[in-house]
Design a protein around this nucleic acid. Structure first.
Lengths: 131, 131
DNA sequence: ATTTGACTTCGAGTGCACTCGAAGGTTTAA
DNA sequence: TTAAACCTTCGAGTGCACTCGAAGTCAAAT
């Protein structure tokens, strides 16, 4: 058995993005390795799906398209493992900082929630007794 | 002593946003309580700065402008404490989910980092001995 | 008296990341 | 053989959240 390939709709379903987005990513250079069948239809290999997967992880952790392009370029250079590592480690740091920032802001919101809870508690204490 | 007010530049510096953004927020209805001096200059009260602060917390945790508008409207209704509470609690849930999602994606990225580290380790083990 | 600099409104422009739709080619099923 | 259900390219459109700049007003300093 040869390596199975997926068409664009299957790849889209598998990766949880739209086919439109997969075409867009390819045309801006994020996915340079997608091959075509005799009709010009895209064929997504296991490798391609892996590339889509990591790119979406980067996107979903806030990396802008420009950063994703840099990583995609490094994926094309098999000797660029240290550079990939550096990019990912820098990004990991950025994401960790982003999580901390979210947690800080979340705490401020929770403080506000507590204040509002006390306010409504004050009102509810005026409710008539059960008797 | 009367309540001190800040001009737009001071408010911007204090809140870490641009004066442009403060005017934008006001004109889209996020800040309906800003008063003006005799020249039409904006005066930011303590209350206004508090409103800006919570709105920015909401923004920085991913709430879209539409949601911020809803909260700003509730701030105008002093009887709407339970509604404010509900909005903030829903948002808190959304932020907690976002943090979990970030952590999941971060783990996937860290797995990739580990793989790359092993690859480079393989190469570095070919280094000549110190003797 | 005039220059500096901070403020005002208003509408237009920017950057990002898609998202869509038109026009056309191919395979599949009725 | 013709209709449906895919796929293709291409350029244009969308939504979001600002961001900017022009034209004008006003107060303080030179």
């Amino acid at each position: 058995m040869s390596a199975p390939t997926l068409n664009i709709q299957q790849a889209a379903t598998h990766s949880k993005v739209s086919a439109h987005t997969l075409r867009y990513y390819e045309r801006i250079g994020l996915l340079p390795t997608i091959t075509r069948d005799s009709n010009g239809y895209r064929q997504y290999s296991e490798y391609d799906l892996g590339a889509v997967n990591i790119l979406l992880r980067l996107r979903d952790t806030g990396m802008p398209i420009q950063g994703m392009k840099r990583f995609a370029a490094l994926l094309q250079d098999e000797t660029a493992i240290p550079e990939r590592l550096e990019l990912l480690e820098q990004h990991r740091k950025a994401v960790e900082e982003r999580i901390l920032e979210l947690q800080t802001n979340l705490e401020a919101i929770e403080t506000k929630i507590q204040i509002y809870r006390k306010t409504t508690k004050g009102f509810s204490s005026c409710k008539p007794s059960s008797k």
